[in-house]
């Protein structure tokens, strides 16, 4: 062996290196292009800290006294929208989830139908659903509830379908072999296996919905968002601060409650 004999090793082939470079170049070009479209005005950017400080000054002191007359009712309404919306979503998501689980419904066309429903529910943003239902039902909590429900079907249904598909086929086979009718196989074979995941998903979605229902009021779908919208339009910044604080507290409490319950059921 001579010293000139070395093993040659390279992580990437020249072709791969070229491809990687092309990807980086693509990112750089995209970044440059978007900067041009956004048109950052430097004066506004330098001004931002002053504006933020000004905003905080106007928000302080927070007008707590406004809570009983103007915020409490809307906050409770928000929680109702979130809870009722989640409940409606669960009722609608269970059949769609079952339809979408390919180990339960063995008709690909029906699986696809379920996937279509789930994707359409998720691909439309909550605010867009809200605008739609405000147009249908008029402004108020009803539009908000239906909006939350329709938006949640996709989330709950998809995850429920996945939980069903992950079920151990062994017990299902055993119950089928015992001559159990299909609904009994589902009740005693699939459901016990998927139930913990299902309740976890439902709680998690409720938690998300508490946050979402605080926002949809901005387009008139009821709840605390409407109070926020009004306060902002009238430049009541001390009330805006109160509303933001209320939303923040409720979201934290919801998060704590959900985490605690989930720990117990899983």
């Amino acid at each position: 062996m001579t010293t000139a004999d070395h093993y040659r090793w390279q992580r990437f082939t020249p072709r791969e290196r070229l491809a990687r470079f092309a990807v980086f170049l693509g990112f750089a070009v995209a970044l440059a292009a978007s900067m041009r479209t956004v048109e950052v005005i430097p004066e506004f950017l330098y001004d931002a800290p002053t504006q933020v400080l000004d905003l905080f000054k106007r928000m302080w002191p927070i007008e707590y006294s406004y809570y009983p007359e103007g915020v409490h009712h809307a906050l409770v309404e928000t929680l109702h929208i979130a809870s009722l919306g989640t409940l409606l979503a669960i009722v609608m998501a269970i059949p769609v989830g079952i339809l979408g689980a390919s180990n339960i419904v063995r008709v690909p066309a029906l699986n696809w139908l379920a996937k279509l429903i789930l994707v359409s529910s998720r691909s439309v943003n909550t605010l867009v659903w809200a605008l739609l239902f405000v147009a249908v039902f008029g402004p108020g909590a009803l539009a908000g509830t239906i909006c939350i429900a329709f938006r949640s079907i996709g989330f709950v249904g998809k995850l429920f379908a996945e939980a069903l598909e992950e079920c151990d086929p062994g017990p299902i086979e055993a119950l089928t072999a015992a001559g159990a009718p299909w609904p009994s196989v589902f009740l005693k074979g699939f459901w016990p296996q998927a139930a913990p995941a299902f309740w976890g998903i439902a709680l998690f979605r409720w938690d998300i919905n508490v946050r979402e229902s605080a926002v949809i009021g901005l387009v008139g779908a009821g709840g605390i968002g409407m109070v926020l919208d009004t306060a902002m339009n009238l430049f009541h910044w001390d009330r805006v601060a109160l509303v933001l604080l209320s939303i923040f507290s409720v979201v934290i409490i919801a998060e704590l409650v959900v985490t605690n319950i989930r720990k117990r059921i899983i």
Partner: peptide, 18 residues
Amino acid sequence: ARRKIGMVFQEFNLVERL
């Protein structure tokens, strides 16, 4: 007819959470 045929499995195939 399947009710008349009892079956025992290698992996037991019990419903674990029941």
